[in-house]
Amino acid sequence: MKDLMGMMKQAKAMQEKMQGLQAEIAEITAEGQSGGGVVTVTLKGQGELVSLSIDPSLLKAEEKDIVEDLVVAAHADAKKKLDTTIAEKTQELTAGLQLPGGMKLPF
């Protein structure tokens, strides 16, 4: 019974930490670039696009396809950085916990 109470306390503490982590993740931003910085995208923690910057030199009708590809590439770069930051923060939170293999946090 003592072990059960200890596990319940651990679960509650973990839940509180996860709530804090989720709030922290919501405030993280990541910036991605493509084309040597001519297109810049900024994402917030939940993947929300908060800004897009396109160098005026790209704004020519005949370069529409290039601009579209650069926006997609910048978004992918920002998403990769965001995912890496979230994974690092989650790893810090769960350090020392014995979680089942393959369990991903936050849920």
Rank of each mutant, 00 (worst) to 15 (best):
K9I: 09
A23W: 01
L43I: 11
L43F: 07
D83R: 08
S53A: 11
K2V: 12
G37S: 12
E88Q: 12
A61W: 03
E24A: 12
K81L: 12
D55R: 08
G37D: 09
E62D: 15
L93P: 05
D65Q: 13
K9V: 14
I54D: 04
A87Q: 13
I25P: 00
A13P: 00
A73S: 14
L21N: 08
Q15I: 05
Q91H: 10
M1H: 14
A61S: 13
G102N: 02
G20S: 11
E27A: 15
K12M: 15
L70G: 00
Q91V: 02
S51H: 07
V38A: 06
E63D: 15
K79M: 14
I86V: 15
E68R: 09
M5D: 10
A95V: 07
A26L: 11
T40Y: 08
G101R: 05
T42S: 09
T94W: 06
E27C: 01
Q46T: 12
V39F: 02
A76P: 00
E27G: 09
M1T: 09
L105T: 01
T84Q: 15
S34V: 01
A61R: 11
I66K: 09
L82C: 06
E31M: 15
L49K: 12
M18K: 03
D77G: 06
D83W: 01
Q33Y: 03
L105G: 03
E24V: 03
D83L: 11
V71Y: 01
A78M: 08
A74E: 02
L59H: 05
A23F: 03
A26M: 07
D77F: 05
K64D: 01
G36N: 01
E31H: 06
A87V: 01
Q19L: 10
Q15H: 10
G20D: 10
L82Q: 04
M14T: 13
I54S: 05
A26D: 11
S51I: 06
Q98P: 00
V41P: 08
D65N: 14
T42I: 15
E62H: 13
A73W: 02
E24R: 11
M7L: 14
L82W: 07
Q98Y: 04
G20V: 07
I66S: 02
S34E: 06
T94H: 04
P56N: 09
K60F: 02
G96N: 10
A11V: 07
G101V: 04
P106H: 10
L70Y: 00
F107S: 12
K60I: 06
E63S: 09
E88I: 04
K44T: 06
Q19R: 13
I25S: 01
L99V: 11
K2M: 10
K12L: 13
M103E: 11
P106L: 11
G47Y: 04
G47L: 07
K64V: 13
L105R: 05
L49H: 09
K44P: 04
A73Q: 08
V41T: 11
Q98C: 00
L43S: 09
Q98T: 14
L82E: 06
Q98G: 13
V72P: 04
